Amino acid sequence: MLAEVEPSDSETGPERTCIVTRTKGPPGDMIRFVVGPGDVVVPDIRQKLPGRGVWVTASELRVAEAVKRQAFARGFKKKVLASEDLPAEIEALLTRDCLQALSIANKAGQIVAGFGKVEEAITGGSIAGLVHAADGGADGARKLGQSLRRRFGEGAVRPRIALFRSDQLDLALGRANVIHAALLSGSASEAFLARCRRLEMYRPAALEPRPADLGLEEDSD
């Protein structure tokens, strides 16, 4: 059980302070950490765990720096254990959090999958964004991007996401061979997009999908 400690001043107000860079930012751009059993540093991805928290900018490089520089000990003002594997563990947790949000959006009826159904959804006009498998071909994504521009004009702004492999999308959506999907407008889709933005922010540039694979970008071309 996590220790019950009153939140510090750094956890009040609209911004949080990164213990590595000392810069301030909104909670959505940060990763919160608390101290768990055995004084182990625990990432609080949903930012809901009890106890005093410290914050690090949502970047794998910053988390690795926090571990290396023992910034967690200074932040918690006590000796704590921060694993060298913590940066990779957080990336896995953020990925799982995104896929869980995608599954919730699917259950809410805000996801359609398959090239043809995605094209139909674009024609219908209630599109919040597109999802493409990172290991899928670029041609289909390019054609759907063209469909977006034809439907909404050159100034259309719709997120296009290619942060997950096809097998990950299959599990999240409960169907096989998912390469393309559309997010329909709704709160569940917006929650998924918010989680994707944080995951993209967290991943090092070297590990992000190539531009041709879209990554997470706004469709404004």
Rank of each mutant, 00 (worst) to 15 (best):
M1Y: 12
M1G: 15
E4G: 05
E6W: 12
P7C: 12
S8P: 14
S8C: 13
D9W: 11
E11W: 14
P14I: 07
E15M: 12
R22Y: 10
P26T: 03
G28K: 03
M30N: 02
R32W: 00
R32S: 02
F33C: 00
F33W: 00
P37K: 02
V41S: 00
P43M: 01
P43H: 00
D44W: 03
I45C: 01
R46Q: 12
R46A: 14
K48E: 10
G51W: 09
W55K: 08
W55V: 08
S59W: 01
S59H: 04
S59G: 05
A64T: 05
A66D: 05
A66Y: 02
V67K: 02
Q70E: 14
Q70D: 15
R74C: 01
K79V: 08
L81H: 04
D85C: 01
P87T: 01
E91V: 02
L94P: 04
R96P: 01
C98I: 02
L99T: 06
L102H: 04
I104G: 06
A105H: 11
A113G: 05
G114E: 10
K117A: 15
E120G: 04
E120R: 09
A121P: 13
G125T: 08
G125Y: 13
G129T: 06
G129A: 10
G129N: 10
G129Y: 10
A133E: 09
A134Q: 13
D135P: 01
G137V: 00
G140L: 02
R142L: 12
Q146V: 12
L148A: 05
E154S: 14
E154V: 13
A156L: 03
V157W: 03
V157H: 09
R158I: 04
P159Y: 04
R160V: 11
I161Y: 00
A162P: 04
R165H: 14
D167S: 15
L169K: 00
L169M: 06
D170F: 05
D170W: 06
L171N: 07
L173Q: 01
N177A: 14
N177H: 15
S185K: 14
G186P: 02
A188W: 07
S189P: 05
L193H: 08
L193D: 06
A194P: 04
A194R: 13
R195I: 01
R197N: 07
E200F: 11
M201P: 00
R203Y: 03
R203H: 07
P204M: 11
A205R: 11
A205N: 12
D213G: 11
L214E: 14
L216T: 04
E217M: 14
D219V: 11
S220G: 14
D221M: 12
